[in-house]
Design a protein around this nucleic acid. Structure first.
Length: 584
RNA sequence: GCCAAAAUAGCUCAGGGGUAGAGCAACGCUCUCGUAAAGCGUAGGUCGUGGGUUCAAUUCCCACUUUUGGCUCCA
């Protein structure tokens, strides 16, 4: 059964793929020497990869767009032909990328081409629209020029890719372009600047985050909540150093497997020290500090551990990909008997945390044993099975990433969808069959025999930096009250009421509300505008009337208005919003 | 790391071979104001860094750094 939705998607894909051919045709007209790679339909549009005699410019993009409109106007037909391998090789003999593709087709596969009039021929399975009159000249837009490796392999040539967006009609295109614009407005780098939350500094090191006072307030709120919930869930907090001698990383295997990703060594007292790329070995040091009975387990040790990883320069991106970040890390060390319960609990905890921050749309990915791996097969099977059981017990939608686990163990990743429909991977729960071996971790079981415990890494928010970036984008900076760095702005109508405004401010501060007063020379209108731009949930306006009545006028960020509210009532209303983690 | 583009005042941006300009923000003064920008004035920049070409470079060229859009990567 094909659903209506699938049919619609199929039609859209056919249109987008045909558009890609039209674009290739326009490029061929502009540069007859062009070599063609591949040009598929993708979400919201299509792209085509070219090997061109020169760099594309933005002016080229306009020319190509015009060329495409011409082709669409001419009602050029798409015609399929089936060729023999030799015919195909002959036809594409000047197109090395096509030749490579043809040679890789298996013997019994049909080799088909699509001719777009006499403008462009492509090796292609199709399907396509009948002719270009089925395409909407107003329904697409070329977006950007990008570099892309041939076949996604960084050892192969870098091609030029043109990205385009396309929809069936101009209205849908417009809606999509507006959506893109809205995403740009919510970009955490932009909002971070506008709301003065954080900064990064070229001269002080790329990918290292400076949290400004307002950003730090949000972080403190997140961390306080995080710690409180961890204690409630039976965790303990630990603190560990930021650097460690090479012995630690030799033992853990990081120096072998991951040296490229670590900040380089510091030499001191004839020893090499490294900044930590992860916290695990340190937590294991604590474990191995003593002997443990099965009676002591499980241990649940959590740490907001700041780690440093040398991410490749081209991959850094605001808060979402950085070189120094704080993992909300924890390690669960348990007996085989306890493992299933621990997994179930950690998954529940994870979902609780994500939901607390307003993420309701959560799905799971289960990654299984890869080809290269360590640890016994039966441990892998048991661990994978317990992960699956936990996901199913929570009724989560999930996908299996076969062979996608780390070499040291299977894992669950949780992804959330934000208000803009984008997916972010946040929580991760990973087994580790590597470190217990390498550090020779043991516990003494009931029978008096030393056995290997299970070790599970988990991070619920991922990293505080990245999570903050995602939160900013999700809310576009208009946070729920409990996360707002300034929850209330007190606005005196004029300087005459500053004194009363300060009283109001003090009452709120005494009630643990994050409050600021605006005592500038600005007019009230300007003060409101400033507070509004800072996305402050509540503006309390006070003037003569309020002063006489010991009241405030509440202007909510949404524009909603309540005048003459008793100060005490305003305080408890705001406290309740904070308590319930609600939007204003 | 790779391909491409960019870097001018705190922010957003204009300009262009003869040592720079706007708006907002900042500061000062006047206004004391009722729900999204009062008015006037002042100050602020080695034009990312280092080389080269030139009588002269912020402008042209090269390298580097960083950022942006992608690709690859993310134990």
């Amino acid at each position: 059964m094909i659903s209506k939705e699938q049919k619609k998607q199929e039609k859209l894909n056919r249109m987008r793929h045909s558009m890609a051919h039209v674009m290739a045709g326009a490029v061929l007209k502009l540069m007859p020497e062009a070599k063609f790679a591949i040009g598929p339909a993708i979400e919201n549009g299509f792209y085509y990869d070219f090997d061109l005699p020169r760099k594309l410019t933005n002016e080229d993009l306009e020319t190509i767009e015009e060329g495409m409109k011409e082709i669409i106007k001419e009602n050029v037909p798409f015609e399929k032909e089936v060729l023999t391998r030799d015919q195909a090789l002959e036809m594409f003999k000047d197109q090395p990328y096509k030749v490579e593709l043809i040679k890789e087709l298996s013997e019994n596969e049909e080799i088909s081409i699509f001719k777009m009039g006499d403008l462009f021929v492509d090796l292609c399975r199709g399907p396509h629209v009948e002719d270009t009159s089925r395409l909407n000249a107003q329904g697409f837009k070329l977006l950007s020029i990008a570099g892309a490796y041939w076949r996604g392999d960084e050892k192969r040539p870098m091609l030029q890719r043109i990205y385009a967006t396309a929809f069936g009609d101009g209205k849908a295109l417009k809606a999509h372009l507006e959506h893109l614009e809205e995403m740009e407005k919510r970009d955490h780098r932009r909002v971070g600047k506008e709301l003065d939350l954080f900064s990064l500094h070229e001269e002080a090191g790329p990918g290292l985050v400076y949290w400004h006072p307002k950003g730090a307030r949000i972080r403190v709120t997140i961390e306080d909540f995080w710690r409180k919930q961890h204690y409630k869930n039976g965790y303990d907090m630990v603190f560990t150093p930021h650097v460690g001698k090479s012995w630690l990383w030799e033992t853990s295997g990081h120096l072998d497997f991951y040296k490229e990703g670590m900040y380089p060594n510091m030499v001191m007292d004839n020893a090499d020290y490294y900044t930590k790329p992860m916290n695990c070995p340190f937590h294991i040091m604590i474990y191995n500090n003593g002997k443990h009975s099965y009676r002591d387990l499980p241990f649940r040790w959590a740490e907001l551990g700041t780690v440093y990883r040398y991410e490749r320069s081209g991959t850094l991106h605001g808060l979402l990909r950085v070189r120094g970040f704080t993992q909300d890390d924890a390690h669960l060390i348990c007996t085989p008997d306890q493992m299933q319960d621990e997994i179930l609990e950690v998954l529940r905890f994870s979902l609780f945390m994500l939901r607390s921050f307003g993420f309701e749309n959560i799905s799971a990915y289960l990654s299984t044993m890869p080809e290269k791996s360590v640890g016994e097969k039966d441990r892998w099977d048991a661990a994978t099975e317990s992960l699956r059981k936990a996901i199913e017990a929570e009724g989560l939608e999930y996908k299996i990433d076969e062979g996608g686990g780390a070499f040291y163990g299977p894992k669950i990743d949780l992804k959330v969808k934000d208000t803009m429909g984008r997916e972010w991977q946040l929580s991760t729960v990973q087994f580790d069959f590597n470190l217990p071996d390498r550090f020779n971790m043991t516990f003494v079981d009931k029978d008096g025999v030393e056995k290997k415990p299970y070790v599970i890494h988990r991070a619920l928010l991922g990293s505080i930096e990245r999570f903050f970036g995602v939160l900013i984008e999700n809310y576009g900076g208009a946070f729920p009250v409990w996360l707002s760095p300034v929850q209330v702005k007190v606005i005196p109508v004029s300087n005459k009421f500053d004194e009363y405004a300060k009283e109001v401010e003090k009452s709120l501060r005494m009630a643990d509300i994050l409050v600021e007063g605006d005592y500038s020379d600005d007019r009230m209108n300007a003060k409101i505008r400033n507070a509004q731009n800072q996305k402050i949930p509540y503006m309390l306006v006070v003037g003569e009337k309020e002063m006489n009545e010991k009241a405030v006028s509440i202007r909510v960020r949404t524009g909603e208005q309540k005048n003459g509210v008793a100060l005490a009532d305003a305080v408890s209303m705001i406290q309740e919003k904070i308590e319930k983690k609600e939007m204003p």
